[in-house]
Design a protein around this nucleic acid. Structure first.
Lengths: 195, 195
DNA sequence: CTCATTTTGGAACAATTGTTCTGAAATGAG
DNA sequence: CTCATTTCAGAACAATTGTTCCAAAATGAG
């Protein structure tokens, strides 16, 4: 056998994720990544492949962390679908507002920067969008059945509506907007669907 | 006197705008710009300054074209504030959906890519956001007074809500989404504010 | 036509890009 | 300990980046 790695693989990947998250793909250089990850060029290429592969791995990591965060918000919100949905949306907004670097959402950033330039990123973003939409739709339908939401809208359409809104929040939040107006805007978005 | 320019200054700028719009700032090279604009390097630097200045000029051009488009949509919609608002929103969506390159909105792209990396772009985006918000707020307030919108929401908050939604539409539209669901999602967004 | 002035194309620039290579150091099973 | 195997640091690579420079061509007022 041979020597074992001197660094934690996912720990270094997380550091790369934060650089990509903040600067995007093209503005991030391998130099940036090497210094941020604290490993050598050789180790980087050996472990993660080239820049694009590292970026995709970082994006996957972001997605999984994001999903876990959503699950936690749901779990902490009792049985009401509306309360669960509201918790997910508010958690997303509050985390975005709390970020001192105002990086927004890495997935939305990736979509804006790369969706039409890179087929892999586009497909990954589409997959994420479908998953989030399905998640919203499930909660909306359950909320309608429990009488928390108006029965006269299509849950699929409303899910698209919320998906668009969340993406917008995350882009606009990169310009240091009024936090309270953002909170009230989100409340208004959900109110339009409520009884 | 001396020789006169062999190209139209705003025509070439418009070509640069389309390149930046599609590829973003960092992924666009001066080589790309020189070939797209059909002028020489020397003419480019002489007329527009460096890459950053050219980008800012292209962004300003986009903004002015966008404003003119909104004004046209309002002018063609009679006296109803709600109809005017709907026309603006729908025009934006339809134009985004119709773009074969799916480039979204250049302002949203600029915000996503550069707002936290470049102070100038951030301020410009903030200025645009304020202007659009004020425009929405004016229409919403007028619509409330005419009884077209519910009186129980704050026009400023609703303007923020719509602003976020429009930004989201434009990001999501870069992933080739279902056009009809996008249309119905927009209708639902306005419906939540309506009587 | 003259000539000062400007534009223009392309060569040239230094700096940075993403990636590969090399050789030495470190490791752990036998 | 042995040694095949892997990690690692940094030099080196070719390509591309944004920008400047220069000489030649073009222009229009006098």
């Amino acid at each position: 056998m041979a020597r074992s790695k001197a660094f934690d693989e996912v720990e270094a990947l997380e550091k790369a994720m934060h650089v990509f998250w903040k600067k995007g793909y093209h503005a991030t250089s391998m130099e940036d990544l090497v210094t941020a990850m604290g490993i050598s060029r050789a180790s980087l290429y050996d472990t993660y492949g080239d820049k694009k592969q590292l970026y995709m791995a970082a994006l996957k990591l972001f997605q999984s962390q994001s999903q876990r965060q959503n699950s936690r918000a749901v779990a902490a919100s009792g049985n009401s679908p509306k309360a669960q949905l509201m918790a997910v949306l508010q958690t997303n907004l509050e985390e975005t507002l709390a970020d001192p670097d105002q990086r927004g959402c890495m997935m939305a950033n990736a979509t804006a920067e790369l969706a039409i330039l890179d087929e892999d990123v586009c497909q990954f973003a589409q997959g994420n969008i479908c998953a989030v939409e399905a998640f919203f739709e499930k909660l909306l339908r359950a909320g309608q059945e429990q009488g928390e939401f108006r029965p006269d809208f299509d849950p699929g359409v409303a899910a698209t509506f919320l998906l668009n809104y969340v993406h917008g929040m995350r882009i606009v939040s990169k310009t240091k907007p009024d936090a309270d107006k953002m909170r009230m805007g989100l409340a208004l978005a959900v109110q339009g669907l409520s009884i």
